[in-house]
Nucleic acid binder design. Structure first.
Lengths: 139, 139
DNA sequence: CTGCGTGCAAAGTATTTGCAAACCG
DNA sequence: CGGTTTGCAAATACTTTGCACGCAG
C-alpha cells in the first residue's frame, strides 16, 4: 500500500521495518488490534520488539492518518487501519461486534466551525458498533 | 433533584449520604469530573471517603442514568450529570473546551436496528467538543 | 435484620519515560 | 553522518479486588 508509505514520508517519519510490518499486519486483517496484539504479531514475523516502541509507532501512524484510534470505554486501546486515507475527510467507522471487521460510514453532518446547541463546534467523536453482513448470515 | 433519587431507587440502589453528595456536586457545576476530583470534593464536604467507593458509585450512578461517562482518548475517565434524564432517549452531549460546560445535543439520526453501510447497527458513541456561547464572548 | 455500601490495603495492568545503541535516509 | 527509532528497565497512574465493618430500608 503505497499510500500509507506516502503518508508516513509526508509526515517526515522514517519507513522502518517495524512500521512496514505493522502496516502489513493491519492490511491483512480487517479488525482492530490492541498494542499488545500488534507486538505479538510483529514478534512472530521479525523477532523481538518492545511494547513501548509499538505504542510510539501506533501513535505515529495514527498521527499521519495511516491508522486511527477507536473510541470506547474499555481499558485497552484499539487501533485500526484507515483503508481509504484522504478519500473523504469526513467519515467515521463501524465495527462488527462479532468479527471485528471495520467499515467506513460516510455522510457525517457535523463539521468544524458549525454552530451546535449554541456552541461553536471544534471536534467530534462518532463511532458505531453493529453486525456486518457476513455475521448476520452466519447466525 | 428528585428525579435522580427516583432513578436510584428504581434501580434498587440505596440512597446513601455519599451518593446524595455526589449528585449535589455534579448539580452545582456544569462540567465533568474525574473520580479523583469527585473524591476531593466529597471529602471537603463530609470527610474521609475512599476512591474505590467513588469509582463504584460513579459507575452505579451512570448505570441508572443519573450520570453518564464521557468518551475520549485521555487516560482519565470523566463523568457528567445527565440533566434531563429520560427526556429524549436519543441525545448526545457537547463539552466546552474552555469552561467544561456540558449541553445536550438532540436530533441524532442513528438508532438501534437500522442498517448502516451493510451493518445492522447496535450502538454508537457520539460526542462533541466546542466553545460555549459564554466563552465565545469572553474571548 | 439483611444485604448493600464503604474504607482500607493491596494488587493488577495499561501506558509512559529516560537512555544508550542501532539504523534510515 | 545526524536525527529518528528502538529496546530495555523502571516508573507512573489509573482502576479493580477482597474483606470486614457499618448503615439504609
Amino acid at each position: 500500500m503505497y499510500k500509507a508509505y506516502q503518508l508516513i514520508r509526508n509526515a517526515g517519519l522514517k519507513l522502518t521495518p517495524i512500521r512496514k510490518e505493522i502496516i502489513l499486519i493491519f492490511e491483512e486483517s480487517p479488525r482492530p488490534f490492541t498494542p499488545r496484539e500488534v507486538q505479538n504479531l510483529v514478534q512472530k514475523r521479525i523477532g523481538r520488539c518492545g511494547l513501548p516502541g509499538i505504542y510510539r509507532n501506533l501513535e505515529a501512524l495514527a498521527g499521519c492518518g495511516v491508522l486511527f484510534r477507536l473510541a470506547g470505554f474499555g481499558r485497552e486501546r484499539f487501533y485500526a487501519l484507515c483503508r481509504e486515507p484522504g478519500t473523504d475527510p469526513h467519515h467515521h467507522h463501524i465495527v462488527c461486534v462479532s468479527c471485528g471487521k471495520v467499515a467506513h460510514v460516510d455522510g457525517c453532518r457535523y463539521h468544524e466551525g458549525m454552530m451546535l446547541g449554541g456552541y461553536r463546534l471544534l471536534s467530534h467523536i462518532v463511532q458505531f458498533e453493529g453486525v456486518c453482513a457476513n455475521c448476520q448470515e452466519n447466525n
